[in-house]
Design a protein around this nucleic acid. Structure first.
Lengths: 245, 245
DNA sequence: AGTCTACAATGGTTTAACCATTACAGACTC
DNA sequence: GAGTCTGTAATGGTTAAACCATTGTAGACT
């Protein structure tokens, strides 16, 4: 018999719903900010029960493609894609495979080095002004006493993000964010910096930005890697001093 | 009135269920391969309805923490964490933020370089034998005519994975896998190699492994980066010749 | 010995009702 | 008029009970 039947497969309904909505979102047929119809209407559209449809919405929510709000004007809103999800998945992988702080730092060293190198090559005049401005702000916080030191720490983060943007490859933004989030899950309480560390940190950042601004890719790369290495070493040291974590 | 009430917040029930089960898995109280009780029993344990409980299971499934099987002996089985999820999330990010093939290749160049460098530093005698063996297999496939060329392509992949393992930092395995999967989503049909490309590819791989085996980190890094760059260039070129994708 | 059949266990789906949260408009109070 | 209460409607969250679909196993049939 030459006829060839394919499997009379009955896709999980919720899966089909997920795929249809996901495709519509990724194809741009519905864009971030848009609101999907209320559950009861979606049920009719997909000819599915509310329970099944809700399973689909839960999956889309978990994928960070939609956000479900309560109350009047509530409903499923299409979200802007962001790197939060990757960070969370990475966290699960890290936890279940015993990835150490050292592993994270080792990887970050390479990534930040590559970011600085690319940034030095690709920075436009506008980028350079922006970076210089950020360094200026950090310098300001640095001088105004301990109560602003946490703002300085925040600037450090901001400068790294800006560098990743300047590097012009979105992957670096995603990866940096994911790694950074997970490193924080270890450090966090250790992030109360002392003056000396802050000063050294500031010198590091200045050096990186200076190299980027002058277009010295090789030096930028070296400075960034050194910076991450020094920072990680500090944190490791602090961790040893407070072994109760 | 000095009394201080806290918010009478009612956590989403499914969320609470997810957290309890996720914690149990990540803490190792239940391990990969274990089976959770059937839905109806879980309902009693959590005092939740089946619908609500199923929403929780859907989320855990989406997180790749469990796998739900049908039929008798079906149910929710705890899964081994793997990098599939990260690959899929990255795919969504890539699609919604218009990340190009060039961006992926640029990043892979840095990663593979770092992997080879670390591998050269850390490879044990056993690792070196394994790598040499893989190269040997690839050489075999290479010589036995076109029908085995796809096996050669598979060996290429295997060697890269082995290098990431030898490098001794699990993060590189995760990242390599995620990037590779997403590159394939672009290439795929372009992966039918010609003899010349295969020969060059083989020379590249041999050079990397040779550098790793002799412990020449700097050369390993350079060879790996060059290899990725050449490979990417080939693919870009092919893509231009078949613009219907 | 091999095949069929019935059954039980389990997830998949549907339905209908009710609860919780929220925005808004209109009524009430001062 | 300003502020506060209150009712209402829209929406997601939860429950419960019933039935369908898939699959392994044991026992009956040939």
């Amino acid at each position: 018999m030459g006829v060839h039947f394919h499997k009379a497969k009955q896709n999980r309904i919720y899966q089909d719903v997920v795929e249809q909505i996901q495709t519509a979102i990724l194809d741009g047929q519905i864009v971030p900010g848009d609101k999907l119809p209320p559950e009861r209407e979606l049920c009719e559209m997909f000819q599915a029960s509310r329970g099944t449809l809700r399973e689909a919405l839960r999956i889309l929510e978990q994928k960070s493609l939609i956000e479900i709000r309560l109350g009047m004007n509530g409903g499923a809103y299409v979200k802007d894609a962001n790197a939060e999800l990757m960070a969370e998945n990475l966290a699960i992988l890290i936890q279940s495979q015993n990835v150490s702080l050292r592993h994270l730092a080792e990887f970050r060293e390479v990534v930040e080095g590559a970011v600085a190198e690319l940034a030095a090559v690709r920075a436009t005049a506008t980028d350079k002004r922006k970076l210089a401005d950020l360094i200026g702000q950090a310098a300001g916080y640095r001088e105004q006493g301990p109560q602003l030191w946490d703002k300085f720490v925040h600037m450090d983060e901001k400068i790294h993000i800006e560098l990743a943007c300047v590097a012009g490859n979105p992957l670096y933004r995603f990866i940096h964010h994911s790694i950074h989030k997970n490193i924080h899950r270890y450090y966090d309480t250790l992030l109360i910096v002392g003056k000396d560390e802050m000063e050294e940190n500031f010198r590091d950042l200045s050096a990186i930005v200076d190299a980027v601004v002058t277009g010295d890719a090789e030096r930028a790369k070296r400075c960034a890697a050194d910076h991450v290495r020094r920072f990680s070493a500090y944190m490791e040291q602090k961790k040893r001093l407070t072994p109760d974590r």
